[in-house]
Structures are given as structure tokens and as C-alpha cells.
């Protein structure tokens, strides 16, 4: 469905913004794209949309690259990006925005009325968008992508400005869209939330994919604790505050003895897989945010 083949992109005075990015993804998948600000996530989405042109490599949608203007329009009919809420037309209603996207992408299968009901927008959708709160605008932007109903959806910071109830609401809709066979690439900083529904999480750093986690694979177990690493033999500092020991080849009795030692030393510990937040801190702990 979506192929990125050895994408390379430079900006003036900023080489290797994207460096040899390769990705293959099919429908019915939710892919989380994770990185601190300024690492190239939005740039990558723009490359997928052909709004930025890589110096090397190719983007293909349903095996078709952006080879001509006509093909670009065909590809754009298969993909929709999450609009920025500042770009909404203040004098138009939310319903007008939804109808515009539904008509542009010729969505005849999912009605605007259903989307409005699913996202609890009925009480405000006919008001001009200049009267909306940030959360209402954010829901509208997500609803616009739903109204377009393309096979590929690019959602950049979709959860920004949403309260926990609406985060749960959008999360449920994302699962439903995946069940319909959509390919959704999601950029989000809410890693705990992301972890609950993504099929795959990709970490982007220095223009590369540094980690590609399959959420359906059995995760490796770790003993995780804070404080001095030398309390447990073989423990390494995973982040500034977290030490880990992989437990894949460690006998249960040994794990028990380590746990006793930690307990005796009054050191809090847990056993389990590494969370996205812990891995994020591991990869980007030393990275200064650029944006």
C-alpha cells in the first residue's frame, strides 16, 4: 500500500534531514512515528504527500510513484493528511469543512452525519469555526480526515489539545478505522496512549529509523529499577534514571534473588517489557530539542 524506498532529503545548510528511510506498510495498520520535535517527522509526512521532493529514493502508493502531475492527483486521492487547526476557515462551519473533504475525496460510503455523531460534534458543528475551542477544532480536523475516508491517513499530533475523554474517543475511532483496513501513520507525543493501539512504533533519529517495534511480537522482559546499577549484576543504565537487566536467559530463581536484594535495599523495581516512554528516554535522553 505505502512504500518508501531509500528516501534521502537535504535542506539548505541542513544535510541528511532524512537519510535512507525505507518503509513498507499495508492496510489495516496503525503505525506510530515517534521522535522529539525537529527530528523530521513532519518532514517525512510531507515527503509522503509529495509536498517535499527527496533528492534520492521514491514514495509509492499502491505501487505508483509521483511520476507526473496526473499521477500525483491520483495518489493524493488515496491519501489525506491531518489539517492544522490554525488553517480552518473561521467564517465557515465545521459541517462545511467536513462536506468539503467528503466531496473532494469523493467519499460516498461514510456519511458526514455519522462522523459528526461518532465524534460528538453535533452541538457545535454548525457554528463558525472561529467560535471553537482548541479541542473542538482538533476534533474537527480529525473528523475531516475521516470525512475524506481515503485508504491512507497521515495524522500529525492528532491528540494535541484534547482532554482524556476525547483522547479516548479518538483512540476508539482510530481502532475502528484500522478495522476498516486503513493504513494510519500517526505522529504523537502521548506515548502511553500510543502504546495501547499501535501495531508498530518507529523511532526516528538523525534522519534514520533507529527502532521499529512490532507491537504484536512477544516483548522481551526486563528487570527495571532506579538508583545504582551495581546492585544487580549485569544491569546497565538504560536512561538517566533507569537501570535494566534483560531477563530472556535468566533463571527465575536468579530473578527472585535480585528482587530480594532490591527489596532489601529499598529500591523500587518492576519486571516487564520496556514501555515506549522508557525507550523514548533511552534514544532521545541526550538529544536537545530543536523546535
Amino acid at each position: 500500500m505505502l512504500e518508501l524506498n531509500h528516501i534521502h532529503l537535504d535542506f539548505p545548510n541542513h544535510p541528511n534531514v532524512l537519510d535512507d528511510i525505507t518503509l513498507q506498510a499495508d492496510g489495516g495498520a496503525l503505525i506510530g512515528l515517534v521522535a522529539p520535535n525537529g527530528m523530521g517527522k513532519t518532514t517525512l509526512l510531507k515527503v509522503i504527500l509529495n509536498r517535499l521532493h527527496p533528492s534520492q529514493g521514491q514514495v509509492k502508493l499502491f505501487e505508483q510513484g509521483y511520476t507526473s502531475q496526473a499521477q500525483t492527483r491520483k495518489n493524493h486521492a488515496l491519501i489525506c493528511a491531518f489539517p492544522e487547526q490554525n488553517d480552518l476557515y473561521g467564517d465557515l462551519s465545521g459541517r462545511a469543512h467536513l462536506q468539503f473533504y467528503a466531496d473532494c475525496w469523493q467519499n460516498h460510503t461514510k456519511s458526514v452525519a455519522t462522523i459528526i455523531a461518532d465524534l460528538n460534534m453535533g452541538h457545535y458543528v454548525d457554528q463558525p469555526t472561529r467560535t471553537y475551542s482548541l479541542g473542538m477544532k482538533q476534533r474537527l480536523c480529525f473528523a475531516m480526515v475521516m470525512a475524506a475516508n481515503p485508504p491512507v491517513m497521515l495524522l500529525d499530533e492528532v491528540m494535541n489539545g484534547l482532554d482524556p475523554l476525547n483522547v479516548a474517543l479518538i483512540s476508539a475511532q482510530l481502532r475502528a478505522l484500522r478495522a476498516e483496513g486503513k493504513l494510519i501513520i500517526l505522529v504523537s507525543h502521548l506515548l502511553n496512549n500510543l502504546q495501547t493501539y499501535v501495531d508498530r512504533t518507529i523511532f526516528l533519529k538523525d534522519g534514520h529509523f533507529v527502532l521499529d517495534l512490532d507491537a504484536h511480537a512477544t516483548p522481551a522482559q526486563y528487570l527495571k529499577f532506579t538508583g545504582a546499577a551495581d546492585v544487580v549484576p549485569g544491569a546497565t543504565a538504560y536512561t538517566d534514571q533507569l537501570n535494566v537487566v534483560p531477563l530472556a536467559e535468566v533463571a527465575g530463581e536468579t530473578v527472585g534473588s535480585w528482587a530480594q536484594a532490591l527489596f532489601a535495599a529499598n529500591v523500587p523495581f518492576t519486571v516487564g517489557p520496556l514501555s515506549l516512554e522508557e525507550q523514548f528516554s533511552h534514544f532521545y535522553g541526550q538529544t536537545e530539542e530543536q523546535a
Binding site: L49, R51, Q69, T72, R73, K74, H76, A77, I79, C80, A81, F82, P83, E84, D87, L88, Y89, H97, C104, W105, M144
Partner: peptide, 13 residues
């Protein structure tokens, strides 16, 4: 131009 993210994604040249 002022609503780029809404219009630029539209599948029309």
C-alpha cells in the same frame, strides 16, 4: 495560501 494544510492536501492541482 493562508489555509495551506487544508487546501494543499486536496487532490486537485
Amino acid at each position: 495560501a493562508r489555509h495551506a494544510s487544508i487546501q494543499a492536501a486536496v487532490p486537485v492541482g
